[in-house]
Each structure stands twice: as structure tokens, then as C-alpha cells.
Amino acid sequence: MEDMEQDLRDSLRALMGSRSFLDAETLFDSGWDEVLEESPRLAVRTLFEEAGRGAVATAGLDVLISLALAPEREVLRVLAVQSRSLEGVDEDGVVMVERAVVTTDPDVVVIVDRRGADVVGAAEVEPGTGWTVEQVAGADTDSRLRLLSGRGRIRRRLSAPETEAMDRMVLLALSHERCGAARGLLDVAVGHVRERHQFGVPIGSLQAVQHRLAGVEVAVEAALSSLDAAWDTDDEVATLVAVAASARALSEAVRDCLQVCGGMGFTDEFPLARLMRRAVVLEGSGPSTRDAETAIGRRLVESGVVRIGEIDRPTEGQA
């Protein structure tokens, strides 16, 4: 299993190569969708962590939701998150979209009405009047950000369970990507502080520097363990925990890895720069730590219960 995972990661790295964007067609050609069918956990973990690590934007979320929502693959559904977009809109209504981020110029958009970390609803939407897609540089030119605006017409509202299942996958994928990005930043910073000498020693031998980077490692590992636990259950609180932990890992990596790379880390030619710009996009692509923790806290207060779990997989044959 571990060998298979490593093979998959290697082939994804090769596929990403010098690309800064991996479109849906390339993903389908690579057979990633088949891995996804066989083991969603493995497919999502490898693609999104590698994408994060390499600062490569992908259409992975679009492929993920397209396959989840419709088995036929001719039409790519493109994800767009827009807060309050579905408020007060009836079944066949017109949806107003304003500067929602998309990866490609879509025929069908899946609009997700997300507020903080909570999803209120989702619908498949077709282009209507004044439908425009504007390419922007934003924080990261290489992310090929496009902003969708205008009126769309609802084709179909997603049912609550369908929305929940889809959003779980989207949030887990985004969290893996954030973990990958944090790991990418940490790798660059570790390499730098081992080589960079000041005061006659590698700065990585100084405790103040060590503790910052060890802290990032702790945050990344905590997030990866939380993701593991979230895949083991469909409890939405477990997903929110993974979202919170991954968002925290990325923001700590952004803060501390840039700091220890000093002036060199601030130059555009240094390998950190690309990762930093992509990280800013990823931080804005979904719920923040605070969003997720607020949602968790609200659920706990509403239910008044903190469930004490039971470890799985006890040894067999204990009678």
C-alpha cells in the first residue's frame, strides 16, 4: 500500500513537472479518475498534497465534484463558492454570482453557498445574462484565477445529503492541499537554515529558529492525523477538525518559514516565493481555522455532548 502510494506520488510529480496548472483533461488522461473510483482517500490525498507541495493549481476539485454528481463525463462541472448566492432563490430561480473563483470557463457551475465553514445549499447552474469570466492575476499569476460574474439559471438543486457528501470531499481535498503547501514551505525553509551560516554557525542550529520550524512540523503532523481520522468517519465535526488543523498548519508555515528565510526568502527568485503566493490563494480558498473552530464550537454547544470515541481495530479473538 505504501509502495503504491509512493508510485502514485512519483507519477503525479512527474505529471506536474514544470506545469503550474493541471487541467481536467490532463487529469483524466493520467487515469487519476480511476484511482479516485477505487480509493477516493488515496487519490485525493496524493493529488492534493503533491499539488500543494509543488504550488501547482489544478482542476482537481472540478473533476472530483463532476464525478460525484454525474457519472457521464462529457460535461465538466466547475466549482464556485459564493456566500449567500442561493438565499431567497426558488427552485428554477436566477442566481446572482459576483466574482466567484473558478478554474476554467464553465458550461455548468456548481454553486456552493458557504458561510464560514457551513454550507447552506448547492445547485447546478447554467449561464444566463451578463455571464462573464474574467482572468485575473490576483496574488498568484500562476494559479490562473478566473472570476465568474453575472446571472445564472438553476438547473438542479442538490439534495442536502448530496451537498453534504460533495462538500466533505471538497473540504478534505482542500485540507490535503493546504497540508502539502505547508510541507512544501517547510522543506524549503529547512533546506535554507541548514545551509545559511551567520555568526559562524548554520542558523538552523539556533534554538529560536529550530523551535519555529519544529512548531510547523507539529502543526502539519497534527493536521495529517486529523485528516486520517476524518476519512475514517462521515461525522462532519471530524471534517471540520481537519479543516481547522490544516488551515492552522498552513498559516503557521506561511508565518514561520518566511521569517527564518530572512531577506533571501523575500526575493522572487528564491523557491519560497512561488509557494508563498500560492499559499495566499489557498488560504483564501475555503474556511479559515477560526471559521472551522466556530462551526465546531456551535455544534458542540447545540448538542451539549462531547462524544468520547472508541478506538477501532482491537485485536481479534479476545474472548
Binding site: 503532523e221 497534527a222 481547522a244 477560526r290 473552530e293 465546531i296
Partner: peptide
């Protein structure tokens, strides 16, 4: 108690449980 403080505590607690299980 602010809900995000409760959520934060639960989140850190869940992380240690998940890590420790591994």
C-alpha cells in the same frame, strides 16, 4: 464561553487523539 474557544479546544483534543491512535 466563546464558541470558537470551545471549537479550538475540541480541535486540538481531536488532533491528539488522532495522532495518538496512529
Amino acid at each position: 464561553v466563546p464558541v470558537d474557544a470551545i471549537g479550538h479546544a475540541f480541535c486540538v483534543l481531536s488532533s491528539v487523539r488522532a495522532r495518538s491512535a496512529r
